[in-house]
Computed example of a mutant assay.
Amino acid sequence: MKLVELRKSVRTFEERPLSEEDRKEIRDFLECSENPFHVKVEFRFLESLEKNTSLGTYGVIKGATSYLGAMVKEGPMALEALGYEVENLMLFLVSKKIGTCWLGGTFKREDFKEAMVVPEGYLFPAITPVGYEKVEKSLTDRLVRFIAKGNQRKAFEELFFQSSFQESYPREEDDLLSDLLEMVRLGPSASNKQPWRILVEDHGVHFYEKKTPRYSDTFPYDIQRLDLGIAACHFHLGALERNLQGEFITVGAGEKDLPEEMLYRFSYIFK
């Protein structure tokens, strides 16, 4: 929970490379990286990109000289798996005092795609700069943060429900599920849309996507599925920390009277 609370988007970096020690720790972490959806996610360390002026982030990122890109072969749960692993990496980097920022729509994908060497049939939906945060923020950084309203989150009762979507899950003190759901609520998402909705039942919790109409039209995939992976990551890491045993499955919720634009994605079933 502490790392989730500390995580933030860093867009202005000191213009110095990562230390050899930090670079090694990142590589070691990535070698052991995995996700509960059993989908292979591949990372590329892209360094010294300032030498190639054709690569860019539309001015959103300042000072970064290293990036980490993630790609995954198209298939079931591919985007959710990538969202999970990238967020898991970012929480690890928070613990190392290394700044990151989810970039899904604000980078020149074709330019980075060449540096990533993306094979046919793979999706390359996100990158993050990695480096040391600069105290003095750029004007663009402050403007993007204001527009994205990154420090604002939807109310607990708007996101989490029990038995049906007509009844909010009550947030209570000393309640394990309340704590885990709060970790989900604090998660980052594209344009801070928070498309996840969770339905709590006795045997587990079901994750749904509340799609924002036309939001993903400019992409060849539903970019909000990355956000569902982030939600799964926060919930799962909290569950493991609190010893709440369970497993993710992709068919676990019966037919519901779903609100408009709501899609079932996966479930975490308690053991």
Rank of each mutant, 00 (worst) to 15 (best):
K113A: 15
E120S: 13
D111G: 15
Y132V: 07
P125K: 05
G131D: 07
K113P: 14
F92P: 09
V72P: 04
T128Q: 01
S48I: 04
E110T: 08
G104R: 02
E133V: 01
P125V: 01
T106P: 04
G121S: 03
A115E: 14
E114R: 12
T53H: 15
L49V: 14
L49I: 13
F107W: 10
E85T: 02
I61E: 01
P129S: 00
V130L: 03
E110G: 06
D111F: 13
I98D: 10
Y132D: 07
F107D: 06
N52T: 11
F107A: 08
Y58C: 05
E120V: 15
T53D: 08
W102A: 02
T57R: 08
G131W: 03
S54M: 15
L89C: 04
L55I: 05
M90K: 09
S138D: 15
E114I: 13
G131S: 06
G104S: 04
E50R: 11
F112A: 08
E87M: 13
G105W: 12
F92D: 08
T100N: 06
K73W: 08
S95K: 05
Y67F: 13
K51C: 05
E74D: 06
T100S: 08
G131Q: 03
Y132F: 08
S66I: 03
M77D: 03
S66A: 14
S54D: 12
T100F: 09
V117I: 13
A64P: 03
K73T: 00
Y67I: 15
L103E: 10
L91R: 14
E87G: 04
Y122V: 04
G121Q: 07
F92V: 06
